[in-house]
Simulated assay, not measured.
Amino acid sequence: MRSTNINQQQNQLVLDFEPGLTERFTSARECVAQGVYQRGLKRVAGDLDEAPGNLSVKLSDDPVRHFSLDMFERYVEKTGDLMPIYYLVEKFLGDKRNSKQAAVEQIQELGPQLIELLKKAGLAA
């Protein structure tokens, strides 16, 4: 049943209490591994033309067999799972933009206080 208080023109506020991807995962490989196991190892392995055992080892910390970038691209293409890409964006773009914006806002908040302190110290005209 649709609410009579919310119509098509109004936007609804959505609150997300889930931690960020960089807080939930330590690497993009770990993010892919979760997606693989959620979808089923055998199914995804078949989509990637890989034996389930080999795929499992590639997603682990095995020093010899690695999950390649080509396989990463095939995984995203075949499954449509964009979470690993969102993880990379958050890791390499999100934090820098957010921290810079937060620093600018903090400077703006402290500006008037700093000027007042400089005046009290006799350092500002």
Rank of each mutant, 00 (worst) to 15 (best):
Glu30Ala: 15
Asp61Ser: 12
Gln113Pro: 04
Lys58His: 01
Met71Gly: 00
Gln108Phe: 00
Thr26Gln: 08
Asn98Thr: 12
Pro52Val: 11
Val89Ile: 15
Ser27Asp: 09
Phe25Lys: 08
Cys31Thr: 10
Asp95Ser: 07
Asn11Pro: 06
Glu73Cys: 14
Val64His: 04
Gln12Gly: 01
Pro63Val: 04
Val64Asp: 09
Leu110Arg: 05
Glu18Ala: 10
Glu50Thr: 14
His66Cys: 08
Leu13His: 03
Val14Gly: 06
Glu90Tyr: 05
Asp16Val: 14
His66Gln: 12
Lys78Pro: 04
Glu105Trp: 03
Asp95Gly: 07
Ile107Pro: 00
Gln101Asp: 07
Gln38Gly: 01
Asp16Ser: 13
Arg97Asp: 05
Lys78Val: 10
Ser60Gln: 02
Ser60Met: 03
Leu93Trp: 09
Gln38Trp: 06
Arg65Tyr: 06
Glu109Asp: 10
Leu21Thr: 05
Gly94Tyr: 04
Arg65Glu: 04
Glu105Arg: 12
Asn54Pro: 00
His66Phe: 02
Asp95Ala: 08
Gln9Thr: 03
Gln38Glu: 15
Gly53Ser: 15
Ile115Ser: 10
Ser60Ala: 06
Glu18Gln: 11
Phe72Leu: 12
Pro112Glu: 04
Arg43Thr: 15
Arg24Tyr: 00
Val14Asn: 13
Leu69Lys: 05
Ser60Val: 02
Val57Pro: 02
Ala45Cys: 15
Pro84Trp: 11
Pro112Lys: 09
Leu88Gly: 10
Arg74Ala: 14
Ile107Thr: 06
Thr79Val: 02
Pro84Lys: 06
Cys31Pro: 11
Leu15Lys: 13
Pro112Ala: 02
Gly35Asp: 01
Gly80Glu: 08
Val104Thr: 14
Gln8Leu: 12
Ser99Glu: 14
Leu48Glu: 04
Lys78Cys: 03
Phe72Asn: 06
Gln10Glu: 15
Phe92Val: 02
Leu59Tyr: 02
Gly53Trp: 01
Val57Met: 03
Val32Met: 03
Ser56Asp: 14
Tyr86Cys: 10
Gly46Trp: 08
Gly94Val: 10
Lys91Asn: 07
Lys91Ile: 08
Tyr86Ile: 05
